[in-house]
Structures are given as structure tokens and as C-alpha cells.
């Protein structure tokens, strides 16, 4: 049994007008929650569609649980919730779910049992009303979203891929989704989701991959990503203002890339070779009276802005995932 749920190696996809994905490689360990982060149009949906073998990559290889993603049995082990959601409007909820489950190779009896369980869990079936018998277009939007989750998870997939799962969800369904993701992870399933909302990613993910303009910016476990980027920022608070000697240290471009001056409070971003330890000794040598000297853990949001930059976000706005 391989340790990786998904491995993408050197995958590129070019369309006539633009390159959607460029030389992308990433690895998703089994049993983790993995965030695929990036601005709109970064290539997240294209990447996901390539994993699902809906779009063929121009170059590179994709393996799911160690098998080629083109292996027809692989699709049965995947559950997918697309960004653009929809169901057959004229079918009954039960028929739609049964259809989706049968497409994943689940037999009717097992599907029916699963449907009962899920409808009850998401309170779509109560003693008063069984929404399973209703037609899809009789359901409210929130209920349709629930039905769509059920369709994604009914066949108990080992790898669940959610494309922008939080977009358009009401708070109750968003909470239900979070709970479900946590529970899936506890049961040893692997969850990959794409989002441009860093807060959700920060709270849920074990590992992340940030892509922009079709290219990978960084990837790794959340802790590693944070640690890697943590060294860069130091928060410094002084008792009294900064003396000329202290200012001189902060303006040393060999050590400090940028210092955000709030007169008594400084957010100092170190250069790549800048060592916080050196900064500390030099500040003390310059006679600074320190109230606070702290290596700050940047939020994922800050890392994202730092690494992708405003340009990447704006450029991404025009295209399609």
C-alpha cells in the first residue's frame, strides 16, 4: 500500500490562449486534509479536472493510490464535489442519489441503506417529512447543497475532492461540511479541497499547496510552510523611540528587507540570509531597550499575499479555473 493518495508529476495543460497549469508537481499523503490554494483562475479547477481524467494533461503523469488515474476503477474510489453544483431537477432526491451511487459501482441495496442514513443525518428525513421522495426542484437551495454532499460521499470514497466547497454555502451547511471533513479525516480518508479562502484552509488543512498563474508557489505541511516563512518576520517593540543607532541597524539592507515603522513598534521583515539572532545582538549593541522581540508566525493569509502578491490575484481574476 502506497503512502500517497495522490501524486501529480510535472503536469502541464495549455489552452489556445493561455497556459492553465505549468509543470505542476504535488503529493498528497494518505489520511490527510490537503488544501489547494490559489486565486481565482490559478489553475485549481483545471488541476482537479485532470485528476478526475475529465481533461487530459498535455504532459506529466498523475497517480491515485499508486495507480494511473486513467484506470477506470480509480474513479470509483473518488468522491467529487464540483464548484458549479447541480442535480437533475425533475428526478426525485432518492433516484438522483441512487443514480450517482450506481455510477460509482454501488449496488442498489447498499445505496438505499446509505441514502436513508445520510438523509437522517442531515435532517432531510424527519418523522414529518421525507424529502427523499420529493423532486429536486422542490427543495430549497440549502437542501439541494446537502443532497449534493450526500451524492459526493454516498459511495464512501477513500479520496474526496472538493472544489471551492465553501462558496455559496450558508453558515449551517458550511459548519456541516467542516464537521464532515474532520470526520472523514478521523476515519482515515483523504480530503483535497481547493479554496481561495485562507481562513478555512488554515483551520482544516494538514498540508497545503499554493498555486498562482498555473505554477506552484510553495507546498508542504502547514506547520512546515509556516515555519519556513516564520523566520522572515520579527515583531520589535521598544521602550521609548528608536535612536539613530537603532534606525541605522533597521536600515541595513543586508539584514533587513523592510521595516514597518510604527515609531515604537516595528514589524521587521528579514532578508533571505538575515538571521533574527544577529538582529537581536545588533539592536542591543545599539542600545535599544526591548519590550518585545518575537519571531512572528504569519497567517496563511499573509504568506499567501506575500508569496503570490497582488499581481497574481488580479491576473487570475480574468480567466477560468
Amino acid at each position: 500500500m502506497t503512502e500517497l493518495a495522490l501524486e501529480i508529476r510535472d503536469v502541464s495543460k495549455r489552452y489556445a490562449e493561455h497556459v492553465a497549469v505549468k509543470q505542476l508537481s504535488l503529493a498528497v499523503p494518505r489520511g490527510t486534509v490537503y488544501g489547494l490554494l490559489g486565486p481565482n483562475g490559478a489553475g485549481k479547477t483545471t488541476t482537479i479536472r485532470m485528476v478526475l481524467n475529465v481533461i487530459g494533461p498535455d504532459t506529466g503523469s498523475i497517480t491515485v493510490f499508486g495507480q494511473s488515474h486513467k484506470d477506470p476503477t480509480v474513479l470509483d474510489r473518488l468522491g467529487y464535489l464540483p464548484e458549479e453544483r447541480g442535480l437533475y431537477k425533475k428526478m426525485s432526491v432518492r433516484d438522483v442519489l441512487r443514480f450517482l451511487a450506481e455510477l460509482k459501482g454501488v449496488d442498489r441495496k447498499r445505496a438505499d441503506r446509505g441514502i436513508d442514513e445520510w438523509l437522517e443525518r442531515l435532517s432531510l428525513r424527519t418523522p414529518e417529512k421525507d424529502w427523499g421522495k420529493a423532486k429536486v426542484d422542490e427543495l430549497s437551495r440549502g437542501m439541494q447543497q446537502k443532497v449534493q454532499f450526500i451524492g459526493t460521499l454516498l459511495h464512501d470514497p477513500e479520496l474526496v475532492i472538493l472544489d471551492e466547497p465553501f462558496s455559496g454555502l450558508d453558515p449551517i451547511n458550511a459548519q456541516a461540511l467542516k464537521d464532515t471533513v474532520v470526520e472523514l479525516r478521523r476515519r482515515g480518508k483523504t480530503v483535497i479541497f481547493s479554496t481561495h479562502l485562507m481562513d478555512n484552509a488554515e483551520r482544516l488543512c494538514d498540508s497545503v499547496c499554493i498555486i498562482a498563474r498555473g505554477e506552484k508557489v510553495l507546498d508542504g505541511s502547514l506547520a512546515a510552510v509556516k515555519a519556513e516563512n516564520a523566520g522572515r518576520t520579527v515583531a520589535v517593540a521598544l521602550d521609548g523611540g528608536a535612536s539613530a543607532a537603532v534606525q541605522e541597524v533597521l536600515q541595513d539592507r543586508a539584514l533587513v528587507l523592510r521595516a514597518d515603522d510604527h515609531s515604537r513598534y516595528f514589524e521587521v521583515e528579514l532578508t533571505a540570509s538575515g538571521d533574527p539572532q544577529v538582529l537581536l545582538t545588533r539592536l542591543i549593541a545599539a542600545g535599544a531597550v526591548l519590550q518585545r522581540f518575537e519571531r512572528v508566525q504569519p497567517s496563511l493569509h499573509q504568506i499567501f499575499l506575500q508569496r503570490v502578491g497582488a499581481a497574481g490575484v488580479e491576473e487570475g481574476m480574468s480567466g477560468h479555473g
Binding site: L52, N53, V54, L75, D76, L78, Y80, P82, E84, R85, G86, L87, Y88, K89, L100, L103, K104, Q148, G151, T152
Partner: peptide, 16 residues
């Protein structure tokens, strides 16, 4: 219908 309701997207993740 499958295209406008976006069902197609779910279905083609199960069958070609």
C-alpha cells in the same frame, strides 16, 4: 439540461 444544471460535471467524474 445536464450542462446548464451542471450535473454533467458530477456525472463525468464517475463515467467518461
Amino acid at each position: 439540461e445536464e450542462k446548464t444544471t451542471r450535473v454533467a460535471e458530477v456525472v463525468v467524474s464517475s463515467v467518461s
